[in-house]
Amino acid sequence: MTKPSLFVEVHILQSLPPSNINRDDSGTPKQALYGGARRARVSSQAWKRATRIQFAQSEEPADRATRTKRIASLLAARLASPTDKGGAGLDGADADRLAAALLEPLGITKSSKKEEQSAYLLFFGKRQLDSLITLLDGRAGEFLALPEKELKEKVAGLDVISALSTGHPAEVALFGRMVADLPALNVDAAVQVAHALSTHAVRTEFDYYTAVDDENSEDNGAGMIGTVEFNSSTLYRYAVLGVHQLRENLSSDASTRTSAVRFIDAFARSMPTGHQNSFAHRTLPHLVLITVRTDQPVNLVSAFEEPIAGHAGLAAESAVRLADELTATGQTWGSDPDCKLATYALDADKLADAFGPSHAFPALLDEVDHLVGAWLADGQLPQTATEPDGAR
């Protein structure tokens, strides 16, 4: 019997000081018009990359993924490494030739501007390069002895596409891969990330700065003058993880369970790095709310369609508004989450009514691990998932 879908949603409220973490082509912090008010915006792409970088920090280097146009040079370098380290011990020219032949079935063409790069970015696991080398079965010299036409025919008999279509690292399984020219390499993403929006209206401000020339003793003028645009905001961030899709992309229940928990941890702790040296903007969330559903995901951004006025602090008012939206959505649509877990440091009785008690974040992750494990085991969610710490 096929298991039902399982969606683990992450709702975050997080305040940023003056910062410019995600700018447009003119250097202005990205914005969006929502509910008739100008909002601070951080693109989903920016926060997905920040999450992926955070996620990779706890991965072994060999188990990480990379997104690059340089797959040919990476594969050639692996072929040139010694055999006792998993390579083929080839010299540079032979490694380049064999790498090009192995990648030809993938339709990876050279960039018109840079010969050493492919025409598009490819997202893959570093261990998947080892799988390509394994296909040679120690016969690299035999392959290289063939003339070009016969080499291509020989490589065509290898299951090169399968080597990059199986054994995905967690990062590829989570964030997916799309290759328009070769759909067989596509991986459906298990994660969707919304553009982060401020819960209130924002106004762009300008930091006028000067830099002093330390070796200038002739006058008192600045060595450099400029401006940086910035804003400050309380953001609503939302992501949803389809555990059923993650399990399909990975090789085991254990890796699915671990990757689900680590994704939530990475998403909550991650931060885009734009202008970070100028603003030191790294903060942690006021609130992390996990809602678990088996029907469909529900983004609660409608809570902020009317912008928060901020009479008693933006974060506290935003949290109460989010609690109201969660309750109203359940009552109106009959679509309450199957489980709710929350971590928050805001003093509001109404939050406990809507979100349940606040768990320390490590305890929240333990609860997520428990409920995902239970669902993977028998397709059921544990009734204890929303109980406070120590209840189980």
Results as ranks from 00 to 15, higher is better:
residue 2 T to P: 15
residue 4 P to C: 04
residue 12 I to W: 01
residue 15 S to R: 10
residue 17 P to R: 06
residue 20 N to R: 05
residue 21 I to D: 03
residue 25 D to S: 12
residue 25 D to V: 08
residue 27 G to K: 02
residue 29 P to E: 04
residue 35 G to W: 01
residue 37 A to S: 15
residue 47 W to N: 10
residue 51 T to H: 03
residue 53 I to C: 12
residue 54 Q to E: 15
residue 55 F to K: 10
residue 57 Q to L: 11
residue 63 D to F: 10
residue 63 D to H: 12
residue 65 A to Q: 00
residue 66 T to M: 01
residue 66 T to K: 00
residue 70 R to Y: 08
residue 76 A to D: 02
residue 78 R to G: 04
residue 85 K to D: 11
residue 86 G to S: 08
residue 88 A to H: 00
residue 90 L to S: 01
residue 92 G to P: 02
residue 92 G to F: 09
residue 102 L to G: 08
residue 104 E to M: 08
residue 109 T to E: 15
residue 116 E to A: 14
residue 125 G to H: 02
residue 125 G to S: 07
residue 130 D to W: 02
residue 132 L to M: 03
residue 134 T to G: 11
residue 136 L to G: 00
residue 137 D to Y: 00
residue 138 G to E: 01
residue 143 F to Q: 04
residue 143 F to V: 05
residue 144 L to W: 00
residue 144 L to I: 03
residue 146 L to H: 09
residue 150 E to F: 02
residue 153 E to L: 13
residue 157 G to A: 07
residue 158 L to H: 07
residue 158 L to I: 06
residue 161 I to D: 12
residue 164 L to D: 02
residue 164 L to A: 06
residue 164 L to P: 08
residue 167 G to C: 00
residue 170 A to N: 05
residue 172 V to N: 06
residue 172 V to L: 05
residue 177 R to M: 05
residue 177 R to K: 01
residue 179 V to C: 12
residue 180 A to I: 07
residue 182 L to V: 12
residue 184 A to Y: 04
residue 185 L to V: 08
residue 186 N to Y: 03
residue 187 V to H: 06
residue 188 D to C: 05
residue 191 V to S: 07
residue 192 Q to N: 15
residue 193 V to H: 06
residue 194 A to L: 09
residue 196 A to L: 06
residue 198 S to G: 12
residue 209 Y to M: 10
residue 209 Y to K: 12
residue 210 T to R: 11
residue 210 T to Y: 05
residue 214 D to N: 05
residue 214 D to P: 14
residue 216 N to C: 06
residue 217 S to M: 11
residue 219 D to T: 13
residue 219 D to V: 02
residue 221 G to D: 13
residue 222 A to M: 04
residue 223 G to D: 03
residue 224 M to L: 15
residue 228 V to Q: 14
residue 230 F to W: 13
residue 232 S to L: 09
residue 235 L to W: 05
residue 236 Y to T: 11
residue 237 R to P: 07
residue 242 G to Y: 02
residue 247 R to N: 09
residue 247 R to C: 03
residue 252 S to P: 01
residue 254 A to F: 03
residue 254 A to M: 04
residue 255 S to N: 07
residue 259 S to A: 15
residue 264 I to K: 06
residue 264 I to L: 14
residue 265 D to E: 10
residue 267 F to W: 09
residue 268 A to S: 15
residue 268 A to C: 08
residue 270 S to G: 11
residue 274 G to K: 09
residue 275 H to L: 09
residue 283 T to F: 00
residue 289 L to Q: 08
residue 292 V to Y: 02
residue 296 Q to S: 14
residue 296 Q to E: 14
residue 296 Q to W: 13
residue 297 P to D: 10
residue 297 P to C: 06
residue 304 F to A: 09
residue 316 A to K: 11
residue 318 S to M: 00
residue 320 V to E: 14
residue 327 T to Q: 08
residue 331 Q to A: 13
residue 333 W to E: 13
residue 335 S to L: 15
residue 338 D to P: 06
residue 340 K to I: 09
residue 346 L to H: 05
residue 348 A to S: 13
residue 351 L to T: 07
residue 351 L to A: 09
residue 355 F to I: 01
residue 357 P to V: 11
residue 361 F to P: 08
residue 363 A to H: 12
residue 364 L to S: 04
residue 374 A to R: 15
residue 377 A to M: 05
residue 379 G to D: 07
residue 380 Q to W: 01
residue 381 L to V: 10
residue 384 T to W: 02
residue 385 A to V: 09
residue 387 E to F: 12
residue 388 P to F: 02
residue 388 P to L: 05
residue 390 G to R: 08
residue 392 R to E: 13
